[in-house]
């Protein structure tokens, strides 16, 4: 991406001491930033009683009981069920965002039509709109339609390109593709659909990948949507399943199980991050900059 390839950064502290201080500073920030993540790994191997009060990061006698407890599930629901549900939700969201946002972005970036600029402004406007204004009427609407306790309210917006951020990201990307490609395609007799499918989409792969990963992670982490729309524990996503470990009615939560489940719930996101961090960071960087 062009944003990352322009000029070099200002080179200032070339001297040894400067370099040492630089690394010390960076490592200090790193230690503080990563502490919670390392902590949760260590804590998941501690007995419940030691989790809060023991300061040693990794227990001298690690136990697997917390994870074994996960294998038993919670309230006759297998933990895997939550993961399946989250995968379904996140996967469905990814497909929806990729299809609907890229179509919309193509129209904004590559087709001239009446009212395009107005619609583009409206689209950007929704980016700044607080979701809570829509929350209640949307809830009422889905409730009247009998769609509460289904995944429809959670997913429908993804298929209708309401994720303005990704539309915007793709528009930015498509605008930077050379115009000549379309012209050539048109001379070959390609309609918009062919141009979109065979020429623009393949070239947009980086933007599509970035959008897909962000969508996946956002859906995976989503809390308020499932909290409001899902009623049945068997339909819960990981976020809500996790709350079940904390929740108590009569008996306090299984603290060790909760921490172990927290770790397991974070793993997919962390793995995604390790695998695709370049796409994520470049995507993030380009959202603020136009190449």
């Amino acid at each position: 991406m062009s944003a990352t390839t322009t000029t070099k950064p200002p080179v200032l502290g070339r001297r040894r001491t400067g370099s040492l201080a630089w690394h010390l500073g960076a490592l200090l920030v790193l230690a503080i930033i990563l502490y919670p993540v390392v902590w949760v790994v260590g804590a998941s191997f501690k007995p419940s009683k030691d989790i809060v009060n023991s300061l040693t990061l990794f227990p001298s006698h690690p136990i697997l009981a917390n994870f074994k407890g996960l294998a038993d599930g919670i309230a006759d629901i297998r933990v895997w069920t939550f993961f399946q549900n989250s995968l379904l939700y996140a996967g469905g969201a990814v497909v929806g965002v990729l299809v609907s946002c890229s179509l919309t972005a193509y129209a904004f970036a590559r087709i001239l039509f009446a009212g395009r600029n107005l619609l583009f402004s409206l689209m950007i406007g929704t980016l700044l709109l607080p979701y809570h204004v829509l929350l209640i009427p949307q809830y009422v609407m889905f409730q009247k339609l009998g769609l509460v306790n289904t995944y429809v309210p959670l997913l429908v917006g993804k298929y209708l390109a309401t994720e303005a951020f990704f539309v915007f990201l793709m528009v930015q990307f498509m605008r930077n593709l050379p115009r000549e490609l379309d012209e050539a395609a048109r001379l070959d007799g390609c309609g918009h659909l062919r141009t979109y499918w065979s020429i623009v989409l393949p070239l947009c792969r980086p933007a599509l990948i970035t959008s897909a990963i962000f969508t996946f992670i956002n859906a995976w982490n989503d809390f308020m949507g499932p909290l409001i729309y899902l009623n049945e524990p068997g339909k819960y996503t990981v976020s809500l399943g996790l709350m079940m470990f904390r929740d108590s009615d009569g008996v306090a939560a299984n603290y060790g199980g909760m921490i172990a489940m927290s770790l397991v719930a974070l793993l997919p996101v962390l793995l995604f991050f390790l695998a695709f961090q370049r796409y994520l960071i470049d995507g993030m960087a380009t959202s603020g900059l136009k190449g």
């Binding site: 920030v29 790193l30 930033i33 990563l34 919670p36 993540v37 902590w39 949760v40 992670i217 956002n218 995976w220 982490n221 809390f223 976020s239 996790l242 709350m243 904390r246 909760m258 921490i259 489940m261 927290s262 770790l263 719930a265 974070l266 996101v269 962390l270 991050f273 961090q277 994520l280 960071i281 993030m284």
Partner: peptide, 16 residues
């Protein structure tokens, strides 16, 4: 340094 931005919104981190 970027990693926390991805997981910060999760319920897990709230518990932590």
């Amino acid at each position: 340094f970027y990693a926390p931005s991805l997981i910060g919104a999760s319920v897990s981190v709230g518990f932590v």
